[in-house]
Design a protein around this nucleic acid. Sequence first.
DNA 1: CAGTATCCTTTATGATACTG
DNA 2: CAGTATCATAAAGGATACTG
Lengths: 123, 123
Amino acid sequence: MKRWDPYSAACPTRLLLDRIADKWTVLVLGLLSDGPVRFNQLRRRIEGISQKMLSQTLKSMERDGLVSKKVFPTVPVTVEYALTPLGRTLTKTISELERWAEAHMDEVLKSQKRYDVRSGSKV
Amino acid sequence: MKRWDPYSAACPTRLLLDRIADKWTVLVLGLLSDGPVRFNQLRRRIEGISQKMLSQTLKSMERDGLVSKKVFPTVPVTVEYALTPLGRTLTKTISELERWAEAHMDEVLKSQKRYDVRSGSKV
DNA sequence: CAGTATCCTTTATGATACTG
DNA sequence: CAGTATCATAAAGGATACTG
């Protein structure tokens, strides 16, 4: 077993953490966890993502082995993205993160409000 | 129970996910999980972080209620950062993410290599 | 449909200098 | 020590136009 130290700058684990913690990656994983989805379907369901970002996100997820891409030779072409087994192991962890966010959203918002009032009152 | 939809652009959960998934936030959480740490100690232990980024990260974590800050009126001043109870609940989820990254690092690296060879050979 | 290529704007981050 | 302020630059992201 090799041990990586995420606190050192060049650590691959740190890079990987960065990648999987990415905004769009998390959302794509969530959508794909229900089964294969096509490019433009993803695009429509993730509000605010640009074609460029989606394309870029999917490409690096494919490179990392998290998703697989299947091309159907229809006209025009149809492309389906699906989670790989590896990707599926990740969604479990990610969805916990999402649950945490949902569960503690109110508490965080309250804290922010308190903080802003305190800072603002100094003016 | 309110339900947020992280796929809509204005969703606070999505913003929160973004924040906690942040590169530096993850690392700071990891270090603080062992107990309170001072500003420059954090700085030294997180290779590659700038003073600006650390300060910024800690500030927003404090605003979110994840860390608390204690100032000791020594000369010069001493500042200790610690996890709040809320912050502590988050570290559990985060450390799972770190474990995932460590556990699957090799597999991801292999996948990347395969991908790069295939793409490169087209040239 | 599912992208890629380009240009251009915005945001993030780093380096440096300064302060209580 | 623990920051903040400022400036400069790099990186991320969006809009648009084009292609198999």
